[in-house]
Computed example of a mutant assay.
Amino acid sequence: MSRISAVNDRGFTLLEMVIAMFIFFAVIAVIPILLQTANPPASDLSRNDQEIHTWFQEISKEAQYARDYAVEQNRLIITDIDGVERTYRRSGSNLIRSGRSGGHSVLQNIDGFHAQLVSDGVVITVNANKKEYKRQLRPTRAPEEEDIWIKREL
């Protein structure tokens, strides 16, 4: 009679499992790097251009609560419906926003900032990267007795 050899079918050893997991995680760590170099950024806009467009969106939202605009010494002063004033001015290559709580830089690496009053609001011009960006803002024109429904959410 021939004897059948015993087969070890207990599965993987701990060492084999650790080696397999190491290889798996090494491959997973390399995939994002390969994908990032294979796909260039989808946008033709530079980071500075994107920041300027984002700032114009933010100031447009702020203009929803504006009661009045003023331009003094190339500074834009926005007064909201609560009487709070916010000032935008250029300092070097930065655009500074000042308010009750102090000031901070909202745009960097700009070549110029100009605000001009027009009959129905203000036109803001920002120059950066040899490009000119413009946006017109209009104040809120709600009747005085209807100011109750225009309240700013903080």
Rank of each mutant, 00 (worst) to 15 (best):
L45D: 05
N39E: 10
S43I: 01
H104K: 13
E62G: 15
T87Q: 09
V106A: 06
M17V: 11
M1V: 09
F12E: 03
D80N: 11
I4M: 14
I150W: 03
V30H: 00
K134A: 00
G112D: 11
V122K: 00
M21F: 11
S91F: 06
D80Q: 08
D68F: 03
V123L: 08
Q64T: 08
E85H: 04
V30G: 05
L15M: 12
V118R: 01
E72T: 13
I78W: 02
D80C: 12
S101E: 12
E132N: 10
E72K: 15
R86T: 10
D68H: 04
L107N: 02
S91T: 06
E16C: 09
N74C: 02
A115P: 06
G83W: 00
Y133F: 11
Q50I: 07
E144F: 14
A128E: 02
K131S: 12
V18W: 00
D82W: 01
L35N: 11
N8A: 12
I78Y: 00
R100W: 03
L14T: 06
N39L: 14
Q136N: 03
Q36F: 08
L34A: 13
F56D: 08
I124W: 00
M1G: 15
R138L: 05
A20E: 03
E145R: 15
R97E: 04
D120L: 11
R97C: 10
I150N: 10
Q64S: 11
I23D: 00
G112C: 01
H53P: 00
N39Y: 09
I28K: 11
A63T: 01
I28Y: 04
I78R: 12
F56N: 06
P40A: 10
A38K: 12
M1S: 13
I78T: 11
L35C: 13
L117I: 04
R3P: 06
G103C: 04
V118S: 01
E85Q: 12
K130G: 15
L45H: 05
V84L: 12
A26V: 04
N129V: 14
